[in-house]
Structure formats: structure tokens, C-alpha cells
Design a protein around this nucleic acid. Structure first.
Lengths: 302, 302
DNA sequence: GGCGTTGGATCAGTTTTCCTGATCCAACCT
DNA sequence: AGGTTGGATCAGGAAAACTGATCCAACGCC
């Protein structure tokens, strides 16, 4: 059996809570005639009398008393959930890979929040799933320009380049069995930023260095952890010069081959988002903020 | 904040349960275009995306997954309650005073149910409240024709007369201090059928019998109990000859003054019901049935 | 690769629902 | 008697909902 007319249920519920049609009309922003008609319609539909009409309002019948709490609970639950979702709909939902988040975006978000107190940002620090960026779940993401399989409905705004070069602790570059010959990197522990091991593979291929087992070494779930292992002297990490700029500046990591830098074929870091939200006010605000900020960071990444 | 468009919520819920718009359209008896539009409208209203569209249907987003159980629970509860009320709306609701119910109507209802298996009768055995017959709660009632204060919107169908005469246990009429003089009824315990004591008052006034304290005696909540007390020899009850016909036939009650009978000024027993339901099919069926039955009972009440 | 199928999106036009504003009535109070 | 308040009703208009047609994307089958 189909539900009764939902607007009639809502009118009945309001009238019952207020013990009258006039107050219900006020709450629902309709006329008392409309409430009266809704209630009449509902009583006809159900075949029961819901109100006893008095000269000063209405009283609930036993049937009306049975129905009221069910409707009040139902509409209250719906109102709470939809209000919460509407609040969530007002959020700017951003997804960012872990290393990039913790080493670039997360610390800077305070600045954005200060510039835009009216925009509630929800940052998810996580890699994309199997299907890549999920436009249904996020307003914006950080990725690389030429990642394959991206939907044509996704806009791309370049940020700064991803420049790679091997990095290690100073004593690994200058100690006894120090790393001075690029063709000898295979003799050291390679520290990988992901199971794909793509960064080492890219660098070795770019400089035509063979005889290195790229399957060897240690794999970490993200670059941040691989970098921290390198700082501990555990091996050589294929560092992203921008993301590791603090370690390099501090000398906790050094570049054994500073002139041997390359970029990933997947292009620069970029901001991505669904085309239909690209001009959304809060998305625009974030894009503009990031453009201003990453201009400086782009220079710093050279 | 007002609720979102309720029909859009319903369309979303059905689509979410079915993982698709086509099946939802089937369930709701609308076209897939209508479902699509409802969902689009709801997403715009809430400012969140509820579905991920695929080529073979839709998947719920996290927001959609939050909203679905709330709506399913709400609509299920509403559907259950309104279905139950509709079933109740199909009932024939009758209210009858206790003695009349237990001594006349209740035992005969089986006959009506046999004649009309399609009509579900709900008999309430109770006196009316302060406001008299409640047309919002009951389809039919049993009363006396000329009860004061009755709404003009109530129809009346006469049944049989209410004939009064004193009745007592045989040994009270024939024992040592036996009841042989109507002017001596005050020497015995008067058994009253209600706090109003109206039946005794009526009889005494009809036959001009003075010197009897009508405030004396025992008061019972209804005639049935007063009659049973009389059968036990506790005193003299002002019996309704029709309702006490079994005790009189069996000799467990006797009439000390069989020629001294009167009727109440409030008229005959009658069936009452609201005018707007008087021609309702199930009300008609009951009225016809009662007319057939009470023709016989009217004769028996003489 | 072409064709057919299925499901979602869109829209002009139509239908249905909902609403307003006016009016009426009953029951109360002053 | 007159004024106030709340519910009932209805003609006419507005808004919501819907249909049917069309389009597109993504798949499976041949």
C-alpha cells in the first residue's frame, strides 16, 4: 500500500502538535484553509477521524493520538539528518595524498581558514581509491597532471613540479662506504615511497642507470615515512625536492648527486575538481588561495 | 528549517533501496524521468550529492548512505501506522452501556458477524463520557431516545422500550417480613443501577409513593451488578423487564407488584450515530440487522 | 565494429496537487 | 448585539509533479 499524501501527513502532524490549524498554518507558511483541506484529505484517505473539532481548536481522537508520535518521530529524524547533510553540503571537501598533506597542505590550511572563516574545510588525508578521484565525495583533490584514467569532466589547475633526486643521511654520503657513484645506488638500501616503486624507476630510467634491482629495498606506505627512514640512515630515498625541503635545508638529508634531478612523466602536482563545481564560490576561493600560495612554492621547488 | 520536498525524499529512498531509478519508478508508479528529477532536486536542496551514477544504476555516496536508513525507518513506521489505521477505519465501532451490552447486544453479535463476515465490529462496553456520544470515536451507540444534550447531528433509530418494575429474590417477596405493600419498599434495601438513582425515583414518582428515602440503599456501577445483588437476596432492584427477562423466567427474581410497571421519561432504547455516517454501508448493515432483531425483542419486552 | 539493450538525463507540454483569498458559520466573550 | 477566533468550503490561480519523447553513455553480443 502506498504512503498517504505526505504533505497531508505533515499538515496533520503540525496541527496535532499545535492543537490547531491556525498555528500549524503559521509554522508551515500556508493558510488555515490549506491545513484544513490537508487534514480532511488525510482522514478520507485513511478512513478514520483524526481530530475532534472544537470552537477553539482541535483535539486528537484515539486514532489521531496513535498517529501523531509516529509522525513526529519520523519528521524529526528526517529534519535532523537533512539539516546535518545541508551543513555538510556547505563544507569544502578536499582529499590529499598523505605526504603532500602533512608536508604541504595541512600546515597551511590555517592560513586559508583565517582568510575564509566562512568556509568550513574538511581535509581527508588519503590516497584515492581504485577509481581515482571521487567527484561525488570530494570537491577538490591534489594529484599529478597526467595521471591516467582521469575522467574528462575533471578540471586541472597546475601547482608546482615534482622534482626527484636521491637523498640520504649525511654519513651515508660521506662515511666509509659512502655513496659517490650513481651507478652504485644498488649497493645501498633503496627506500620506496609506495608499492609501485615508480619514483626510483623513473629516476634510474631518466639517467640510464642499469643493473639496479628496483624490486629490492624497503617499501613504505607513503613518502613521508620513506623520508623519515632515510633521515635515520636506513638507506637512500628518491626524494621530492619540494616536500623534503626542510630536511635538505637542515642537513638531515643530503643529495649525493645534486645535479641529477628529474621530473616524473606524470607531470606537475595539480589541484583537481569536478567541472560542474569548478566555479562554485568556495572552490574558487580555495583555488585562488592555492594559486597565490603555490606561486611562491613553485619558485621554492626549483 | 523546513523539511525538504517530501516527495523527493520518497523518490530518493525508493531509488536507494533499489539501487536504480527504473525500479524505484515502478514501485512509485511514476516514470524514471520523474525519479531522476526528484533526486536532482533533493541534491540541489541539500547541497550534497547522494548518488554516484553508473551505467547500470546508481550507488550511494557517503551522504546518501547516511540519509537512507533514516528515511527507510521513517517511511516504514509511517506506512505501518497508516496501514493499521486504515484497517481500523474499516471497523464498525459501537459503544454500548454495560448492562445492555452484556445482557442484550454482546451475546447476539455472533449472529451479526455470521451474517456479515466482511464487517469487523469493535464493541466498546462502556457508558458515554461527560460529553455524551463521541461521533469522532464511534460509528454507533445505544442510548435512550430523549437523553438531553444530544447533538442535532445525531440520528436516532428506536429499538425497544425500557419498562421498569421492582424485582427481588422470591423469599424476599414471600418470607416472614415479605414485601407485599408498595408503600413499604422503603423498609427494604433499595438496589440502585447508578449513582443517579434515577430508575427508583421515576417509579416512585409514577405511582405517587412518598415517604421513601431514595438516597438510601446500595449503589452499583451498572444494572447488571444491581440485578445480581438482588438475586442474592440483598434487596429490591428497579428492574428493566427486558434486561432481567432471564431471571424472571427462571424465578430467581420475582415481581412483588407485577401490575405496577412504568417507562422512563427518557423514552425507548435506541441506536444512535452521526448523520454523516448514517448511510455508510456497514452502519446500514448493522441498523438493518438490529431492526430485524429488535422487532422480536420489542415484543418480548412487553 | 556495428547493433541492441539498459539506465540515467533533459525538457516541452500536460495534469495534478497545492495554495490563496474570500466568504461563511459556530461558539465564545464583552 | 457586536466583535473575535478558529475551522470549513470553494473558485481560481500557482506550483509541483508527471508523461512521453528524445538523447547519451556504457555495456554485451554477434
Amino acid at each position: 500500500m502506498p504512503l498517504p499524501p505526505l504533505n497531508a501527513l505533515r499538515a496533520f502532524e503540525a496541527a496535532a502538535r499545535h492543537n490547531g490549524f491556525v498555528a500549524a498554518a503559521d509554522e508551515l507558511c500556508i493558510t488555515r484553509g490549506a491545513v484544513s483541506r490537508h487534514v480532511k484529505l488525510l482522514e478520507a484517505h485513511l478512513g478514520v477521524t483524526l481530530f475532534r473539532r472544537t470552537h477553539r481548536g482541535v483535539d486528537l481522537t484515539a486514532a489521531g493520538q496513535r498517529l501523531l508520535p509516529v509522525l513526529t518521530d519520523a519528521f524529526s529524524a528526517i529534519e535532523r539528518e537533512t539539516r546535518s547533510l545541508t551543513a555538510q553540503g556547505a563544507e569544502l571537501r578536499i582529499i590529499c595524498p598523505p605526504a603532500l598533506s602533512i608536508r604541504w597542505l595541512f600546515p597551511r590550511l590555517e592560513s586559508f581558514r583565517r582568510d575564509h572563516p566562512e568556509i568550513r574545510v574538511r581535509l581527508t588525508t588519503e590516497f584515492y581509491g581504485q577509481q581515482g578521484f571521487d567527484a561525488a565525495e570530494y570537491d577538490l583533490g591534489i594529484s599529478l597532471e597526467h595521471r591516467p584514467g582521469r575522467s574528462p569532466d575533471i578540471e586541472v589547475q597546475p601547482l608546482f613540479p615534482m622534482v626527484l633526486s636521491p637523498a640520504c643521511a649525511p654519513d651515508l654520503a660521506e662515511g666509509g662506504a659512502r655513496l659517490t657513484d650513481p651507478h652504485q645506488v644498488g649497493a645501498f638500501t633503496l627506500l620506496h615511497e609506495s608499492p609501485r616503486r615508480s619514483d626510483w624507476a623513473t629516476w634510474l630510467e631518466t639517467f640510464g642507470i642499469g643493473g639496479v634491482d628496483v624490486e629490492s629495498g624497503e617499501v613504505f606506505p607513503n613518502l613521508d615515512m620513506a623520508v623519515r627512514a632515510a633521515v635515520m640512515g636506513s638507506g637512500v630515498v628518491m626524494a621530492d625536492l619540494f616536500l623534503c625541503r626542510e630536511e635538505l635545508a637542515r642537513g638531515t638529508l643530503v643529495l649525493p648527486f645534486p645535479d641529477m634531478r628529474c621530473e616524473t612523466p606524470e607531470g606537475r602536482y595539480c589541484l583537481i575538481g569536478p567541472r560542474d563545481k569548478w566555479k562554485d564560490r568556495k572552490v574558487r576561493a580555495f583555488r585562488d588561495w592555492v594559486a597565490g600560495m603555490s606561486g611562491m612554492d613553485t619558485d621554492a621547488a626549483r
